[in-house]
């Protein structure tokens, strides 16, 4: 019966111009897993042209390194090296607890963020936690918000509560340094409190086929303030560093469009490709950038966003338990208040 059904089905397919799905099965061998990974990237990765990577040449380079008798450990190392050719923090290979993520977007750059100084000298023991956001009113009547990860949940009520508490402040420092990203909808939710009207903030598009240049038209992304919620239209300084990645990168891009916002610190780490995931025959998971985002001027932000004001942490300030970026932001907001 199964054979009858199989051949009957194939016969139907033959009649209908061979439109059945042919599955390209890769063997669960090192070579099979290599080919599967190369093909997944070849068909789905979205930044080959932007990053000037010849993926066919990458195949020529790495295929000879794969043998079917190599260990999983060695195979993993070679595959991670191949993925690092695109220099993309969103591209990684998961094998149990290993991710093999690329970190070049922030390695060899100053961190410009010291958690000890922040916790001991700024937040101290008297700060507030609402949802996943830490916040406090500093001595000079400036509101300080620390958001650690965009994967941490935040609600409209959380934002109402925080901004209402800051109602007598003349400025806010919104610190997203070393925030590795997370949920884009949280970026949208927070950014929407700092804008007065519907504002174009970004573009996004996606691959429409397997070719490296197969993309859809760019879709505009707007932010608009939520009705009936507390808004903040006074000055805001957003603190950034090289470890602001992915959804944080998008958040900084959104906020850069608002007239009351100044970004301060270092260039963000980028990560403007919405990642997709897939898996190899051996069960290892692969994550890769699949859907590019752009700023409101249709410029690429995959390589990061420059701040309005570049500032690095100084050793002198560090020795004095001062965060140079926070102090600069405070001076800026205070000077704006006196104008």
């Amino acid at each position: 019966m199964k054979k009858f059904l199989k051949y009957g089905w194939l016969g139907l397919c033959a009649l209908l111009l061979g439109s059945c799905i042919e599955i390209e099965n890769f063997d669960n061998t090192p070579k099979g897993n290599f080919e599967a990974l190369w093909k997944i990237m070849d068909e789905h990765y979205c930044f080959f042209k932007l990053k000037n990577v010849d993926w066919d040449a990458v195949h020529v380079k790495y295929a000879p390194l794969i043998t079917n008798d190599m260990s999983d450990t060695l195979l993993y190392d070679v595959l991670v090296d191949m993925l690092h050719e695109v220099k993309d923090g969103h591209v990684n290979l998961q094998n149990g607890g290993l991710t093999g993520a690329y970190m070049g977007q922030y390695q060899n750059y100053p961190t410009n963020f010291n958690l000890t100084i922040l916790e001991e000298d700024y937040l101290g023991s008297k700060y507030f936690n609402t949802g996943s956001i830490q916040y406090k009113i500093l001595d000079d009547n400036i509101g300080y918000i620390r958001y650690e990860k965009f994967s941490y949940g935040v609600s409209e009520t959380n934002m109402d509560y925080i901004l209402y508490r800051f109602r007598d402040c003349h400025g806010i420092i919104l610190d997203v340094r070393s925030n590795p990203g997370g949920n884009l909808s949280n970026a949208d939710l927070i950014a929407s409190r700092f804008v007065e009207r519907k504002t174009l903030v970004a573009y996004i598009h996606h691959k429409t086929g397997k070719g490296h240049d197969d993309f859809s038209n760019r879709l505009p992304i707007y932010i608009e303030p939520p009705a009936g919620r507390v808004l903040w239209l006074r000055p805001v300084v957003v603190l950034t560093n090289r470890r602001c990645f992915s959804a944080t990168n998008a958040f900084v891009s959104y906020m850069s469009n608002f007239p009351n916002v100044i970004t301060l610190g270092d260039r963000t780490g980028g990560g403007a490709g919405l990642p997709f995931s897939s898996s190899l025959p051996n069960g290892w998971g692969v994550r890769f950038s699949a859907s590019p985002q752009y700023n409101s001027k249709m410029q690429e932000i995959e390589s990061g966003i420059d701040p309005d004001i570049f500032i690095d942490q100084t050793d002198e300030d560090k020795a004095n338990h001062l965060d140079t970026l926070i102090e600069t932001a405070r001076k800026l907001l205070n000077s704006m208040n006196h104008e």
Binding site: S185, I204, H206, T208, K210, L219, S291
Partner: peptide, 13 residues
């Protein structure tokens, strides 16, 4: 969905 269209992008269109 489109070939590489995320659920996020679908929610916008």
């Amino acid at each position: 969905p489109g070939f590489g269209q995320s659920l996020f992008e679908i929610s916008l269109s």
